[in-house]
Design a protein around this nucleic acid. Structure first.
Length: 1026
RNA sequence: GCUGAAGUGGUGGAAUUGGUAGACACGUUGGACUUAAAAUCCAAUGUCCAUUAGGACGUACGGGUUCAAGUCCCGUCUUCAGUACCA
């Protein structure tokens, strides 16, 4: 009986589906374990072999945990709102829901054929109204919450309202908008409802705010920074302008500190935690207020009270080193403080910066630019006037958009000061600042700084803040880089907001009436007036009497009101989906309390590192919010997280050859295509091996750049090349005379990797000729013959990102068909460490496939099963238990590549041992089952079981089988291993030394010399030092 | 620049605690079986020197610690990823 993987795999996939083998239950005596893959977007292109890598790893772990006696939740679903479906809809008019449905079907088929142990009964889709109903519900909860800094958590907005009503807002310690007016309880109670709503909006965790965005009028949409290249849209090259728009925002900044602290409680990689830390960007320092001196006279008595510049600094200890101030060109005070003499220059500078995109400004770090405003600020302590400059190295969006410049301690300030000849006072004891700024704060003593003299960074900072507070001109402050997150998208294919507007004030629709379904539109583009696509919907108004979405023409602004036209961003649905899997069909709650209490949070989360600062930060924010409001009882969504590395493609390259004769100075081309073949045929392609061989292995053609490959100088070679290319005689003579040079250049051309065999050779030339480029082409094969096709033709290879563009995409469908899902699963793991990026090369899969065949043969012979009840030998048990130990350790460490090797070694050994014992071969199947579940199930059933192998207990490791009686000692001389010696394990050090020293090879090695020292580590090594 | 990861045969990679570097595979070469091919099986395969015995070199580079270094320490270089005028 042979190993018919296709039949076996189809059979077990059907069995698992019919028997609901992997359905998780919400009540169990077993301990729970929750394994989750990052939410996939079902793209139209389907899966390539890179996609399932993480799924295979998590599946192995999930299956392993089932063998270990856990109740495992391992669900899967789709983050099915998103741009590609919308783009497709814009182009074709096809409703995105239809495209999405089709794509999901393809995805599901591809996932099923790989044999994942997903519990599909819990599938969720973000675009399903029964799901986004709860996304809308959470949005409303955020709207109805504020962040209380005193209790350090989010609270219901009612608690804020009652505070306002009883004591006004002056004692409220909340995370809110800047520049909020103070009011008393009486004032609050006398405010109109509209005014009250306006005020509350400044406190809510989701709020409407004016945000500056990159608006592209031609596309009618907002673009992300990386969608803009050189100030125009990447797609289409349309101009982009900065525009203020009213959009929903999320007050994630309220959670900055908790998001930072929480990182210490979770088991994520350092690099991931580090990028979240960077993103949150906490800096501790002080805010300092500088008074602006009046324009007329720079005397302290004439300080104009109305103009103050607030700055944030991490180095209040260096405040006596301030020699100028710099404002961002966009800073609102710039126009007010600029003196008439400087006005023209300042305005020109502001205009020039406005033209540069934010990205350009950031990319260009070298150019120092700025303008003096003519105004001066007063130093809070020395009362000296300080010139105020503007410069585009100060960003409007960070801190207060203004800095106190301390050139001696900050390199950018230093460069600026040098460039504009501003004094650079030195306030560090014994430090030379003639060449560059001195940023070190740990080993530096402050000098020339009045009351800070002689203090170190820590002391001086404390004192400076204290003194600033005394003056009322500053205080200690912690600043975060993390900005509130914009939550509105001018798109169609996303969650609609449950929001309508009364007199322009947002109102939440009552939770009882959710979901608010996405309306139909006849086109998926923005409206002519620049409104989002939902502006095209005819039925998109809210009736407060019937609680229904009604036709727009019923809008009367008394009972029927317009609905929100934006939709939610992609991260809305993905920020909480892991809770929905716990209770996917609940229509009363997003998940029942019982389910939430049982499953808690995700134990193991696997996905790509591209979500480091998006999804993984936002979902942590939402979970913390939901915890605060008592909806869930966990503080973090993902306990352990692993980033799988990208699988890269191995592109196949052929070299298009150009032959020219040029004059000896190489300036003038004498002939370009003066060859018979070129005049007849369009293209000549050379094989990699040919190109390497004619250059005597000196040149390896680059796969990415075209260029001069070869210059023929050698007469013999010239002859052979001319013969090969049938160069016309007139040139032949000139080349031989040395008047001309034969020059060969090449262009690398990628061809489909699926047309390459295991030895990097082209399989099918006819298939290739379907591409224009290769039609009628000629091929110089490895042996140097020009042929229409055929011969051995080796391609060059280059590792690059797997993408259609490079023709290096390998589809798992064809792998499964040719080698089976178990081979695919094993090979993906075998490629290398999970976290590392590594190239895919289909050629190698024969190795793991051969292993599976060998495994099969260990159990099944030509006449059926040859496993029996014979007692295992000592060797059998040794092999088994060493495999158990290694595989278990590997799985716990997510080192799946090494366990595949371990399986290979085990099967090689057991085959050599001719093992037929069920007592060894059965546990081996359980070990293998997480990796290659189909073959494991099949052989397990052939051993006589009617149940699935999926919950068979994981074999117990017994160390007694690994105890060795002897050890093959490496005998080293001065650390170099010379020979090995088999010695009993129970020998003492002295006995070992005696045995080694008396050995003839030792004597030969020493040649009579007396060793200085003999190092013996029993059970490990012997080292003789001469 | 900063942060993180990494650098080992022709290739993917192994060596988890400092203790026989290159496991396990791919590829290559030779052989068996076959009319032939495929499949399968066997053997060799880091580089160099040597007929053999054996020897020298070898984990990006330069130092160091140690009886012993891919592994630890110092310095340098390179690659990849993320991030960036963050005050």
């Amino acid at each position: 009986m042979q190993y018919h993987f296709n039949e076996i795999e189809a059979k077990w996939q059907k069995y698992w589906a019919e028997n609901k083998t992997f359905q998780a239950v919400n009540q169990s005596n077993k301990p729970k374990y929750y394994v989750l893959d990052m939410f996939p977007y079902p793209s139209g292109a389907g899966l390539h072999v890179g996609h399932p890598l993480g799924y295979i790893a998590s599946d192995i772990y999930a299956r392993y945990k089932r063998h270990k006696g856990f109740n495992v939740l391992h669900p899967q679903g789709y983050d099915s709102f998103g741009l590609p479906a919308e783009q497709y809809a814009i182009q074709t008019g096809q409703h995105p829901a239809i495209t999405t449905e089709t794509n999901i079907k393809t995805y599901r088929r591809q996932l099923d054929q790989i044999g994942f142990s997903f519990d599909w009964s819990r599938e969720v889709r973000t675009s399903d109204p029964s799901y986004y109903k709860w996304t809308q519900w959470i949005f409303i909860q955020l709207f109805e919450s504020w962040y209380n800094n005193d209790s350090n958590k989010a609270e219901a907005i009612e608690t804020l309202v009652s505070k306002f009503a009883s004591e006004g807002n002056t004692h409220v310690n909340a995370v809110c908008d800047d520049n909020i007016e103070a009011f008393t309880a009486e004032q609050w109670n006398s405010f109109s409802s509209e005014k009250q709503q306006d005020i509350l909006l400044q406190y809510r965790l989701t709020y409407l705010a004016e945000t500056e965005v990159n608006w592209c009028p031609a596309l009618g949409t907002v673009l992300a920074n990386d969608e803009i290249v050189n100030g125009v849209s990447e797609r289409g090259g349309h101009p982009v302008i900065r525009k203020k728009m009213t959009q929903w925002s999320m007050r994630i900044s309220a959670y900055a500190e908790r998001l930072l602290q929480g990182l210490d409680t979770i088991d994520w990689t350092d690099s991931l935690k580090e990028s979240q830390r960077n993103w949150i960007g906490k800096s501790v320092g002080a805010s300092v207020t500088f008074k602006v001196l009046s324009n007329e006279e720079c005397h302290a008595e004439l300080v104009e009270a109305s103009h103050k510049i607030e700055v944030f600094t991490t180095r209040p200890d260096t405040i006596f080193g301030v020699s100028f101030m710099t404002l961002a060109p966009e800073h609102e005070l710039v126009s007010e403080i600029t003196t008439p003499e400087q006005k023209a220059e300042v305005e020109a500078y502001i205009q020039a910066t406005a033209k540069r995109s934010e990205r350009d400004r950031m990319a260009d770090v070298k150019t120092i630019s700025g303008v003096f405003t003519g105004a001066y600020a007063e130093h809070p302590f020395s009362k000296e006037p300080i010139p105020i400059w503007i410069g585009d190295y100060v960003l409007a969006g960070y801190g207060t958009g203004a800095v106190m410049s301390v050139p001696c301690g900050d390199q950018r300030d230093y460069d600026f000061a040098k460039h504009f000849n501003i004094p650079i006072p030195n306030i560090f004891e014994g430090v030379d600042i003639s060449e560059e700024a001195h940023a070190d704060k740990d080993h530096t003593i402050i000098a020339n700084s009045d009351f800070l003299n002689g203090m170190n960074y820590k002391k001086a900072t404390k004192r400076a803040i204290f003194e600033l507070e005394q003056l009322g001109q500053g205080e200690g402050k912690t600043n975060y880089r993390l900005r509130d997150a914009v939550f509105s998208r001018q798109r169609y294919w996303g969650e609609p907001f449950p929001v309508y507007y009364v007199n322009g004030k947002p109102q939440m629709i009552d939770k009882a009436h959710l979901p608010i379904r996405l309306p139909d539109v006849e086109k998926y583009l923005p409206t002519e007036t620049g409104e989002p696509p939902l502006g095209r919907a005819d039925v998109w108004a809210w009736c407060t009497e019937t609680h229904l979405v009604v036709s727009n023409d019923k809008i009367n602004n008394t009972t029927v009101f317009p609905l929100e036209l934006n939709t939610m961003p992609g991260w809305a649905g993905s920020s909480w989906y892991f809770f929905r899997y716990m209770d996917a069909h609940n229509d009363q709650k997003f998940a029942s309390e019982d389910a939430l209490n049982y499953w808690e949070n995700v134990d193991l989360y696997i996905g790509g590192s591209e979500h480091a600062t998006g999804h993984l930060l936002y979902s942590r924010f939402w979970v913390k919010f939901m915890k605060d409001r008592g909806f869930v009882n966990v503080e973090e969504p993902f306990k352990k997280l692993i980033n799988q590395g990208m699988i890269l493609g191995t592109s196949a390259i052929v070299y298009r050859i150009n032959i020219k004769t040029v004059d000896a100075s190489k300036n003038r081309i004498i002939s370009d295509g003066a060859f018979k073949y070129i005049s007849v045929k369009s293209n000549i392609f050379a094989s990699y091996n040919y190109l390497v061989s004619i250059s005597n292995n000196e040149i390896k053609p680059s796969s990415t750049n075209s260029g001069l490959f070869f210059e023929a100088k050698n007469k013999e070679l010239i002859f052979s090349l001319m013969k090969l290319f049938e160069v016309e005689n007139e040139y032949l003579e000139q080349v031989l005379d040395g008047n001309c040079v034969l020059e060969i250049t090449y262009d690398p051309i990628r061809i489909d990797v699926n047309n390459i065999n295991n030895s990097d050779e082209i399989i099918d030339f006819d298939k290739m000729k379907l591409w224009n480029e290769f039609e009628n082409a000629l091929f110089i094969n490895d042996s140097g013959h020009i042929e229409d096709e055929g011969g051995v033709f080796t391609v060059g290879r280059e590792v690059e990102k797997m993408s259609k563009r490079w023709l290096n995409v390998v589809n798992p469908d064809s792998i499964c068909e040719q080698y089976g899902a178990d081979s695919l699963r094993l090979y993906e793991m075998f490629l290398g460490p999970l976290e590392q990026a590594k190239p895919w090369n289909t050629a190698g899969i024969t190795g793991v496939h051969g292993f599976l065949k060998k495994l099969w043969k260990l159990y099944v012979g030509e006449n059926g099963l040859h496993v029996n009840d014979s007692e295992p030998t000592k060797d059998n048990l040794k092999t088994l238990h060493k495999t158990i130990k290694k595989v278990e350790e590997d799985i716990e460490n997510f080192s799946f590549n090494t366990s595949v090797s371990t399986f290979m070694i085990a099967v090689n050994e057991l085959t050599t041992q001719k093992c037929t014992s069920k007592k060894v071969l059965e546990p081996l199947l359980v070990l293998l089952s997480p990796y290659a579940p189909h073959i494991a199930e099949e052989l397990y059933s052939q051993l006589g079981y009617n149940e699935s192998i999926s919950t068979a207990p994981f074999p117990k490791f017994d160390a007694s089988h690994l105890v060795e009686s002897s050890k093959n000692y490496p005998i080293s001389f001065n650390g170099k291993m010379r020979f090995t010696l088999e010695l009993p394990m129970d020998m003492s050090k002295d006995e070992i030394e005696a045995a080694v020293m008396s050995h003839e090879k030792t004597k030969a090695q020493l040649q009579g010399r007396e060793p200085k020292k003999v190092i013996i580590v029993p059970g490990k090594i012997v080292n003789i030092v001469e």
